[in-house]
C-alpha cells in the first residue's frame, strides 16, 4: 500500500508484474484486499493523513503477516523527513520485517528482497 509515496516506488512495484520480472513465477502475487494478504508492501514516508489508513490496513491483514517497507522514504521519511505532514517511516506506525532501500528500488532489488523474505519465513 502507498502511505504517501511520490509514486516512483509504485512504478517499480508495477514493473514486477511485467513479463520480464513476472513476479507470479515465484508464487507471489498482488491481492486486492489486505484480508487476502500475507505480506504488506508499504511505500512512502507515511503521511500524517495516511497514518490511520496504514494502521487499519495492517489490522485488517490476517496473522501471520509480514511488513516490507519499500524505498528510502519508508525507512525514515527520506527527503520528506521533518515535515509537519509526515510521520517519518513505516516502522513508526506498524512493525517492519524487511526494508528494501532505494529511491526507488529497482524491480531486481524488490524481487531479491521479497525472495529473501520467503526464504527466511519458510
Amino acid at each position: 500500500m502507498d502511505a504517501g509515496s511520490c509514486n516512483g516506488c509504485e512504478l517499480e512495484i508495477h514493473a514486477l508484474n511485467n513479463i520480464v520480472y513476472d513476479l507470479e513465477r515465484f508464487g507471489l502475487r498482488f491481492v486486492a484486499s489486505p484480508r487476502h494478504a500475507d505480506v504488506l508492501l508499504v511505500t512512502g514516508p507515511v503521511t500524517v493523513n495516511m497514518r490511520e489508513a496504514l494502521q487499519r490496513t495492517y489490522d485488517a491483514t490476517p496473522a501471520p503477516k509480514w511488513v516490507v517497507a519499500v524505498g528510502d522514504c519508508a525507512l525514515d521519511g527520506g527527503v520528506f523527513a521533518g515535515s509537519y505532514a509526515v510521520v517519518g517511516g513505516v516502522a513508526k506506525v506498524v512493525p517492519v520485517d524487511l526494508h528494501i532501500p532505494g529511491c526507488p528500488p529497482t524491480p531486481q532489488q524488490l524481487l531479491s528482497g521479497l525472495l529473501a523474505l520467503l526464504q527466511t519465513t519458510s
Partner: peptide
C-alpha cells in the same frame, strides 16, 4: 484528496 500531502512547499 490530500492523503499524500507531504508538506513539500514548507520543506
Amino acid at each position: 484528496l490530500g492523503y499524500v500531502h507531504k508538506g513539500i512547499e514548507r520543506l
